[in-house]
Design a protein around this nucleic acid. Structure first.
Lengths: 224, 224, 224, 224
DNA sequence: AATGAATGAGCCTTCATTCAT
DNA sequence: TATGAATGAAGGCTCATTCAT
């Protein structure tokens, strides 16, 4: 699915940041993240990206259809990894609340660790409705789906209120995390973004929790 | 603060959409919203905006410093109105929860009513860190301040948990509402955006509410 | 019909070379003829054409759609004049043979007088089947039509053989003249091109003449 | 003269279209004719030509100096064959008129049989003065020389008028045939090109014939 | 205040050609 | 011989902005 021009798709072993494709392709994506973050997508020059990757300008077009495709592919490479990480939680963390907390930590941790990537995701990727529609239609939907399913699981288990659409709740959580990331970038990144995860999820869990009264406590005790 | 070149600032009576300044200036801003929404900020041509306002290209520069200023001024005109509306709530709605609910309704209602404006706010305004830094530094900070103060009031009154930073809680609510707006745009606006307000605020209020004591539990029990 | 972008079509008074349109448009076409002839269409740079016309590069695009349109418009401007000249002959020269002779003189005279134009017409205009199809479909067909009609007139008057299609004969004459022009260019223009006109038409007339025997001579005598 | 890089010139046995050189070289020329005709010389990609010949892009440069050389070599290969065919007529057809007729048939027959070749010769080869000068200086001069000599022979034998330069007459005939070929291409090749040969030569012979004496008149009368 | 013709900086992309294998 | 990944030069075109009227 990751858009790739002319180069045969390599067998993908793990979804770590720079190990997902041919080395030159990955080097170009890394360089693109840097330059997009520093100059902005429009001001970024393809030739500059190539130079930072140690390649000639024309080489970019052996791996990517055009400049847009560079941004799109950066999104895809990152989302592939994020979704893979998210899927891992499905099996490794059974409790819905704990899973959401971990999900949020991974989300903000990923962005907080790579400031270039964070800028690209929080700013540059929102260039146009065209881009956004493309993004949200595929990978982002899948990513949100992981949150939604966890919420639905919490509802099924009786942990979460059932008078809420899991889709709406998922968007709500995502939107809150997204805002934390954007604010962090605009604050010049003077604090640890990942720490926001716990705070946000805490409010969210409270908000979606089933009657946290004594009565509800009893109910939960009956269901480990 | 609204950036205006050469034109004297009119005494602002009401903050309705097109009645805030000289008629040609407002016509240009209205046209800009349309064209930015339809084509995107970069693809939008200044000459096209002028044409839709029934003016010549050069005339734009009698009212605005440059193309950026057009977007910036559109933001400011809208935020002036939004902040004024928000301030009204400070006196008209005393209960923090009710005020937040009303705030959210106004927020999503405003965007849901004007799709061009919604696209400009949810997409075009996020083009660059430059824009975003400029926005969040002024009007947006003020706007978030209204939410933050209401939350702080709720904490002071004992309605809301005090183990949360009001600033963080305000961003969380704003982020959640923002995501609703963005999703609505990408969904091609097939449903009423404003209806999301109640749902989001409901979760939020639950989330920030003071530890459900027995009393509150009782109250809630009486209200299924 | 002459393709013109954005600029209102001026009332056309005469069809002389550089007086057919707005002065800047004509200056650009004159400059284009020079540069196309000197460098060839592909190697010619739009900026160089603009510079020679004393204008900025962008100005070209106020008068022409693109680089192709520059070549196309040069063709059209010249053909407009050539066709107008040809039409004048319809009334000013009654005798078919004499008219063909005059037509050929005008044709080669026009090219022989303007070497840049000659190169553009004999070489640059033959760039591609796309161009050629476009040319021959419109103005060139009209131009050939003038020759064809004169030949048909000669046939009707009994001067020319009637066992020949006037269309084929017209193409034959045009092809012969065309070859003279091309050869002249490749010879570095060391002789007077116009002088070839009489020689070519002489052979052509002999070739299409009705029985040039005594008998046919009698016939012609009966028709002044 | 055929420009060949690194490949030893093979002893040329016959001049048929694809049997003149090393098989891969010929395959590349055949592919070049196709691609040049379909896309035009400039739009044609060397890699596409190689692909159609079943070879890699780099291999083209083992057989040809550059892209120009591909076009030039195509011209030379074809002209070698055409000149060889023309030379055969010198011995096989003694009568100048008959020889010219046969020459024209071969000329148009060759183009009429291979539409790709026709487009290359009538359109792509006329791209630039550089190409044209190169062509007309060598093979084309030789080809025209065959016509010119035949006309001179006719003059010497008393068949043709002697008040005409054989060179001019040769160009005239060539130009007329050339125009037939070009028209045929632009007409989308809906009729048999070769049939034009007889018609054109008929007019030409009439045109260059010695003053129709009584005798020739008689001869003609006997041959309607 | 308004016009709109003119300006000119700026860059993505193509593709012929090379060369290490 | 043959390959094909890599190179890198080169320019058409757009459009925000200016300014003479």
């Amino acid at each position: 699915m990751t858009n790739r021009a002319r180069t045969p798709r390599p067998r993908r072993s793990s979804q770590t940041r720079a190990g997902a494709g041919p080395p030159k392709r990955d080097a170009l994506l890394d360089a693109a993240a840097q330059v997009f973050a520093e100059r902005g997508f429009f001001a970024a020059q393809v030739a500059e990206i190539a130079r930072r990757a140690g390649l000639a300008a024309g080489t970019v077009y052996l791996y990517f259809k055009n400049k847009d495709d560079l941004l799109l592919s950066l999104f895809n490479r990152t989302m592939d990894a994020a979704i893979a990480d998210g899927r891992d939680l499905l099996t490794s963390v059974a409790d819905p609340s704990a899973r959401l907390r971990r999900f949020a930590e991974l989300h903000l941790g990923r962005l907080g660790r790579d400031q270039h990537l964070a800028i690209v995701f929080q700013v540059e990727l929102r260039q146009s409705t065209k881009f956004m529609a493309e993004f949200s239609a595929t990978r982002l939907r899948e990513y949100l789906g992981l949150i939604r399913d966890t919420i639905a699981l919490g509802q099924a288990r009786g942990d979460f209120r059932t008078d809420l659409s899991p889709t709406l709740a998922a968007k709500l959580l995502f939107g809150a995390l997204d805002e934390m990331a954007t604010n962090w970038i605009l604050s010049k990144r003077t604090y640890a973004l990942e720490a926001d995860a716990a705070r946000v999820v805490d409010v969210f869990i409270h908000g979606v929790q089933r009657q946290p009264s004594a009565a509800s406590g009893v109910i939960r005790l009956t269901r480990p």
